[in-house]
């Protein structure tokens, strides 16, 4: 890659620059700042679309009363039961139970607190879900 070929397509990271290695006019390697590359933006977007789709699916199920708010916060933080169980220090099957509204309603404050800590939310927030998903950086980026 030559210096003039280093892509400068502003992508999801906005104004942030990373560095690329590219050859200068004398054929020597140099560190060249790059705003991003269309190719990367496309694939990154693809990954985010997958994530947002799953968050949306879960949000619908929470609203329909088939899953607990915990399920929403879990996928919104790109976690699955296995990872959440590790963070909360609980066994996987207990986490699984808490993803159901019934299991979630019976939660003691102590356990609730653990989940709240993982997601850095208040206990009150943990029991609620937003009416629609809001990942602002994604919305602004078309």
């Amino acid at each position: 890659m030559r210096k003039y070929e280093v892509p400068q397509d502003v992508g999801l990271a906005g104004e942030m620059c990373e560095v690329n290695y590219a050859l200068n006019e004398n054929g020597e390697y140099e560190l060249v700042p790059s705003y991003g590359w269309e190719v990367k933006t496309v694939t990154l977007k693809q990954a985010w679309e997958e994530i947002l789709q799953s968050v949306e699916d879960v949000l619908e199920k929470v609203k329909a009363g088939r899953l607990s708010p915990l399920a929403y916060h879990m996928v919104a933080h790109q976690m699955d039961e296995k990872l959440l169980a590790k963070y909360a220090g609980l066994s996987r099957w207990r986490v699984k139970r808490h993803l159901k509204p019934r299991g979630f309603r019976r939660l003691k404050p102590g356990i609730l607190q653990r989940y709240a800590w993982v997601f850095e939310l208040g206990q009150e927030e943990l029991c609620h879900v937003p009416s629609s998903i809001n990942f602002s950086f994604f919305a602004n980026w078309k």
């Binding site: 590359w37 990367k40 694939t43």
Partner: peptide, 15 residues
């Protein structure tokens, strides 16, 4: 997409 992300994601310096 995953292959390309791993190849070009921040931290590779390209390629």
């Amino acid at each position: 997409g995953q292959v390309i992300r791993m190849q070009e994601e921040i931290g590779t310096g390209g390629g």
